[in-house]
């Protein structure tokens, strides 16, 4: 066996096999998934709430006196979206982990909350654009038939909006998954952190970092494939 092959084999052994290190990569991947899903849940809830406030505000009819409560909520939502989109995610994580929740040891909770709040700002814009993309005539037709605002939203507007924004929401999910690598800065043992720790132990950089790059890539490719299938299914059920 040539020497270079031995060297690669040895590096692989040290990085993944020795001391059951592959288990640590798996648990790191698990942490990254958990953070992604938790943050997505928070992001969608926040996103829907902010989107409803902002569309309600935008759709207030001219010539009527504006609703005070909605105006106030709208300002709060605007500040939220501006601040979150205007600052780097890593800085937001550092502030959450090392300032606001400096005393807390619940690192995964902090990570989920930070990424969720971040994602909510982007998701709200996606959902808002989805609702705005629907012809106002749809709401008018629904209301003219005597149906209430929530019923028309649920039966007519939201189903059409979701279909329009599904690709954008899918992108957000993928971005979120990749961004979980930033939670390393607050000390959470996600996939990236595991690679850094193992590199520090073994002095092997190539294997752990190319290894996790491959893992991120494979997960993203699987997600892309699944989203494509979902989209095609939705379009077909529409028979358009």
């Amino acid at each position: 066996m040539p020497a270079w092959m031995l060297k690669i084999g040895n590096a692989f052994y040290q990085s993944f096999i020795m001391a059951d290190r592959w288990k640590r990569f798996l648990s790191g991947l698990g942490v990254s998934f958990t953070v992604t899903l938790g943050a997505l849940a928070i992001g969608i809830v926040l996103g829907v709430l902010v989107a409803i406030v902002r569309t309600q505000h935008d759709q207030q009819k001219t010539g009527q006196k504006p609703n005070r409560l909605i105006s106030v909520l709208n300002v709060i939502c605007e500040i939220y979206v501006t601040v979150i989109r205007g600052t780097p995610m890593m800085v937001q994580l550092l502030i959450m982990g090392l300032v606001i929740f400096a005393a807390s040891r619940n690192l995964i909770g902090i990570a989920i909350l930070s990424l969720g709040i971040n994602s909510g700002a982007y998701v709200s814009e996606i959902i808002r654009s989805g609702i705005m993309s629907i012809d106002p005539g749809q709401m008018e037709a629904g209301r003219s038939l005597g149906m209430s605002y929530p019923v028309v939203m649920k039966e007519i507007i939201i189903p059409q909006a979701i279909k329009n924004i599904l690709p954008a929401l899918g992108n957000e999910l993928i971005t979120l998954f990749k961004d979980t690598s930033l939670v390393t800065v607050i000390g959470l043992a996600d996939l990236t952190k595991v690679a850094i720790q193992i590199q520090a132990k073994t002095y092997q950089a190539f294997m752990p970092f190319f290894g996790i790059a491959a893992m991120y890539l494979i997960v993203v490719m699987i997600l892309t494939k699944l989203l494509g299938i979902l989209e095609r299914r939705l379009r077909r059920s529409d028979r358009r």
Binding site: G137, S144, Q160, R240
Partner: peptide
């Protein structure tokens, strides 16, 4: 009842 210039049928139904 109201009938609109652009019909406004619900395309998802």
């Amino acid at each position: 009842g109201m009938v609109f210039q652009h019909f406004n049928l619900f395309p998802n139904k």
